[in-house]
Design a protein around this nucleic acid. Sequence first.
DNA 1: CCTACCGATCGGTAGG
DNA 2: CCTACCGATCGGTAGG
Lengths: 203, 203
Amino acid sequence: MRELVDQASIRTASLALFAERGYRATTMADIGAALGIRGPSLYKHVPSKQSLLVHIMIGTMEDLLRAQRLVLGLGGDAPTQLRRMVEAHVRYHAAHRREAFVGNREIGSLDRANRQRVLTLRADYESAFRAVIEEGHASGLFDVRSPRLSSYAIVDMGIGVAVWFRPDGEQSVDEVAYVYADLALRMVAADVQASGAAAPLST
Amino acid sequence: MRELVDQASIRTASLALFAERGYRATTMADIGAALGIRGPSLYKHVPSKQSLLVHIMIGTMEDLLRAQRLVLGLGGDAPTQLRRMVEAHVRYHAAHRREAFVGNREIGSLDRANRQRVLTLRADYESAFRAVIEEGHASGLFDVRSPRLSSYAIVDMGIGVAVWFRPDGEQSVDEVAYVYADLALRMVAADVQASGAAAPLST
DNA sequence: CCTACCGATCGGTAGG
DNA sequence: CCTACCGATCGGTAGG
């Protein structure tokens, strides 16, 4: 017999509640109630409330990094790679709004060790965007004033998708992914006149 | 005699603590301790913990809207207006990181009426960006696929500044404001080739 | 998977 | 501005 309450269902329920009410405002009793059991019964399946948050946040970053590596493995020049990376980034944030939303709001709710793990994964994720931007700049296909600021802007605008995107809204996931990739490419493309004097590349 | 503990000092302390630990994780005793008094003594100055959060969040949106109106009052064409708006947006988020950070993380900690007020102010703030983008598109100075998605992207990348900016970091406020305004203009400028066929304007 | 319960926390009030 | 305290909440454990 399959159990009705298993790890997966607990994770699904906790994700929904963390997204809706916040980690601290969600009680083990709330999570249990969503599954038809009492709070203490959850401890037969999970070691702590914190472990539920850790799973969401580490899992989210690993999913993002996996998607990013997949896309980078396809090769192509910097514009092609950046386009694919942004599309994957946006698609994830539109399709997994709650994971991304919780991941961005609840960093401070993680214990120190796990917060550090998440921050490291995030830094890796961002630096991959920056690397492609630097590569495009070096090859002359991009013209950027600051690869770091460009990658921050691109990553952050994608993160925002998790906040405002609605599956039943006017824009489809495809539409947002396409438009955002286009916006990102415009930001760094070399065939835009630089407004102002060319400046040395900062970090 | 001036009181050592007044509304302003309570607000400063609560802002710092809300930013560092989160609203729910901050106790009235914590705020009092930061001012050298006990938790219950705060109730001689403020009606509730919630009122401290409300003040921060409404005040932040009003500051942003005031700065935005100031800039729009200067006139100019759409590119000039958008540049000034983005610069003001970024400057605020770099100079008031904690206000912006708390404002973006603790929306769910507001009671319903105040959350609605903040959301309305935010919608007004975003729509001003969109209006300038639409004006630029209509006049032919911009070429955008979706004014709404463009304004979301521009607003969200600026919000991100409050998260990663460090006053003692490599980039100065001026530098970030300038670069981000440039990125925003590149996103919508008409003298960029549209990649792909021109599509009808969506919202 | 449950009830009973521990130990700790916290916003706010009473009454100086 | 303080101490004492109320009423309520909550993560987790004990012991079925």
